[in-house]
């Protein structure tokens, strides 16, 4: 399963990847440090799931999600953000994302999202 993690913090990129690796055996990771690089990576990799931070330089996470969904309406996007505002969660959820998770990405959240990705992959 190809997973693209787009976050300007290398610390958060690695935290997400290491926790997912613990719960999902066949994960193959790709990383991008901002929205612009993330979109280029998306087009070249065509990941099964894309993890997107919201607050990033160049292109914000919100803009990036819109661009990815215009490019691929079936894109499966998981937001991992420090933003705890209800209004932001509601707005971003309207973009048709799979899940909105608050940072820090912990073991419980990793397990939840890995089970969901595994079930989805088995159902296909």
């Amino acid at each position: 399963m190809k997973l693209l993690i787009i976050d300007d913090s290398v610390f958060s990129q690695r935290m997400v990847a290491s926790l997912i690796k613990k719960h999902l055996e066949n994960a193959e990771f790709y990383f991008a440090k901002d929205g612009e690089e993330g979109f280029l990576q998306y087009k070249s990799i065509k990941p099964d799931y894309t993890f997107v931070d919201l607050l990033m330089p160049t292109i914000s996470g919100g803009e990036l999600i819109k661009m990815i969904r215009e490019y691929d309406s079936n894109a499966k996007i998981i937001v991992v953000s420090a933003d705890v505002q209800k209004s932001v969660k509601d707005e971003i959820s309207d973009y048709g994302i799979v899940a909105f998770l608050n940072k820090p990405f912990n073991d419980e959240r990793a397990k939840y999202i890995c089970n969901m990705m595994r079930d989805d992959s088995n159902a296909r």
Binding site: F11, L55, A82, V84, S87, P104
Partner: peptide
């Protein structure tokens, strides 16, 4: 930077939620 981002988002964001004030952040 990232830990500060998470803590400050939580701090300011929760107050924004409680007082019903929307905020737009810039990169930390």
């Amino acid at each position: 930077k990232e830990v500060g981002n998470i803590i400050l988002n939580s701090l300011i964001g929760e107050i924004g939620n409680y007082l019903d004030i929307k905020l737009q952040y810039t990169v930390p």
